[in-house]
Amino acid sequence: MAQAIQQLINGLTLGAVYGLIAIGYTMVYGIIGMINFAHGDIYMVGAFIAVTSFTLLAAFGVSSVPFALLAVLVVAIAFTSVYGWAVERIAYRPLRASNRLAPLISAIGMSIFLENMVQVTQGARIKPIRPILTGGINLFTQGTFTVRLFETQILIIVTTVALMAGFTWLITRTSFGRQQRACEQDQVVTKVLGYNVDRIISVTFMIGAGLAAVAGVMVTVYYGVVDFFIGFVVGIKAFTAAVLGGIGSLPGAMLGGLIIGLVESFWAAYLSAEYKDVASFAILILVLMFRPTGLLGRPEVEKV
């Protein structure tokens, strides 16, 4: 029982991170109908920017943890969203009108490029940072097992909930959100109505990259280590989350993230740690087989 609750906490934390990344996939898919294959690597870039910023702050002698976290978040979001913008501008926009495979291939190329760019410029070794938040709350003890809620986990869950609230407000209440949703439904009509579709798509990529950067910062704080290869597997799992929740649906992405996180934690704890990635992929295949529109997705009618 105690272990199950501990796994529940761990799984929710992990799921929050997957959910943040999944939103990037689902938004981009919703608006231009393509899988942003480089999104996982954008998250990795965000994590590296976080490592560099934390190290810089430590070198300047900043000791206030809340200030450091806030500063790193702002810096990481700002720089990573530039990366998101650049990826869209270079690899996707010129191919928007061409056949479906072309942008996917250029996205895979972008993913390989980003991974190796970070390896070349930042080094191939694992980057450890000094633990920033070390405390935690002991919830209760059962036998010898103490259920513990770490400060980092509280941070991740609170940040995610806050971001989700802000993000939902952005999409449902603001002018930009309406333009974005209009663009999802019909780009041509949006253009006719006088909105700059290119700009809306660019901003969508930047928002996705910004959320991925938050996930990158959170993972850096949570695990304390980062390497250039983390983007690939996390990217696929987040994509699985997006598909599971119903691609194009924002609450679905978060829900899918939580489910994937929970399944992974429980699978690793009770079944086998080696096959935990197999579990995520198997879920993906099963969902697509039996419910291709995902849990909260709308069924799509194929047009002639």
């Binding site: 270079i90 191919l95 390989i112 190796n116």
Partner: peptide, 16 residues
């Protein structure tokens, strides 16, 4: 060390 870097860039550029 630049091999895969160039490989990825070439994939993007040839597609574009």
């Amino acid at each position: 060390q630049y091999r895969m870097l160039l490989f990825g860039a070439a994939m993007v550029l040839i597609m574009v």
